[in-house]
Each structure stands twice: as structure tokens, then as C-alpha cells.
């Protein structure tokens, strides 16, 4: 049986999905905070949110990079 591979797939799935969701959620949260009226430095928070979205996008691109054999050679 390929229990090890099954475990591997489950692990990778968990790590990848959680990373993306956490990053994106943080981005959404920070965007929301930046929109608050009493927020003192909305610019800073907004750029933090952009960084979160950015890293999230990079993570996705890295994932695609990993699976396309053309780049793997």
C-alpha cells in the first residue's frame, strides 16, 4: 500500500491550502481595518494588506512553477 504517499498528499494539501487561506484572510482583514474610520494610518495597513495578497499570489505561482515539468528540467 502507498500509505506514505497518501500521507504526503494529505500533508501537502493541508499546508498549501492553509497557507493560502491564512494569507488571503489576513489580506481581507487588513483591508477591512484600513477602511475603518478611526484608523490613523490607513495607508500603512493597506500596504500591509497588499503585501499579504502579494505573497499569496506568489505562493500560487510557485505552486504552478513546481508542477509544470517544463520548468523542472
Amino acid at each position: 500500500m502507498k500509505w506514505l504517499e497518501l500521507l504526503q498528499v494529505a500533508g501537502v494539501t493541508l499546508v498549501a491550502a492553509v497557507t493560502l487561506v491564512v494569507l488571503y484572510s489576513l489580506g481581507v482583514r487588513l483591508t477591512a481595518i484600513a477602511g475603518d474610520a478611526q484608523q490613523k494610518s490607513p495607508g500603512l495597513v493597506r500596504s500591509l494588506a497588499a503585501v499579504c495578497f502579494g505573497i499569496c499570489g506568489l505562493a500560487v505561482l510557485f505552486g504552478i512553477y513546481l508542477i509544470v515539468p517544463y520548468f523542472g528540467k
Binding site: E5, V9, V12, T13, A17, L20, V21, Y24, I67
Partner: peptide, 21 residues
Amino acid sequence: FSAETSTASAILASSHLGFAL
């Protein structure tokens, strides 16, 4: 969003680690 992220991760992980789901 969460569901799709999980789906994409699971499919990509499985098809490239050899345990096809």
C-alpha cells in the same frame, strides 16, 4: 474560497505526487 483552495491544492498535490485522487 476555502473550498476551492483546498480542492486545487489536493488535486495538484495528488497528481504530482503519484497518488491520484
